[in-house]
């Protein structure tokens, strides 16, 4: 269970920081018609990069300590057949939740664009937040599903 908790919380932080970085980037970067461009990642860009390195080291350390954890498989790493079954079931939960959210967003984003009117930057930021949130919810769903099946089965 420890490996899944570490992996999913780490993934959640990574996507959270990535989302913040992109929200900042959308507001502070530009690409002009004359060919000049400027991209700024802001303080979240540094935090994102730092966490990427720290999380990579944590994952490597975890793979050395826990034989059932493989960096290539991440949260899908399984120590035995029971854990493999739990992973599949948790993945089923995640699949349903993420796809439901994506379908809602498919209809929600165009409606949202009307609401934002001419505030284009704000709309772009909102889309980034929506996508980032969906991914984080997906990670959390997998984590909750995994813990649930680990306790009940």
């Amino acid at each position: 269970m420890k490996k899944v908790i570490i992996e999913q919380i780490g993934n959640g932080i990574l996507v959270g920081l990535g989302t913040c970085m992109l929200v900042f980037m959308v507001a502070n970067s530009h690409w002009d018609v004359n060919g000049t461009s400027s991209f700024q990642f802001g303080p979240f860009g540094i935090l994102f990069l730092a966490w990427l390195i720290v999380f990579g080291i944590i994952r490597l350390g975890l793979s050395k300590l826990d034989q059932s954890y493989h960096t290539g498989e991440g949260e899908l790493s399984a120590g035995d057949e029971r854990e493999r079954k739990i992973s599949q079931r948790a993945l089923g939960w995640t699949y349903r939740v993420v796809f439901t959210l994506l379908i809602i967003e498919l209809f929600g984003v165009p409606v949202m664009s009307i609401g934002f009117g001419s505030r284009l930057v704000l709309f772009r930021q909102a889309v980034v937040v929506v996508i980032g949130s969906t991914l984080i919810i997906g990670f959390l769903t997998y984590l909750v599903g995994w813990i649930y099946y680990d306790i009940t089965e």
Partner: peptide, 15 residues
């Protein structure tokens, strides 16, 4: 070659 948690779960009749 399984985890101890699997043995516990099996003994409880859950798995």
């Amino acid at each position: 070659n399984v985890t101890r948690r699997t043995i516990i779960s099996m003994e409880k009749g859950k798995y």
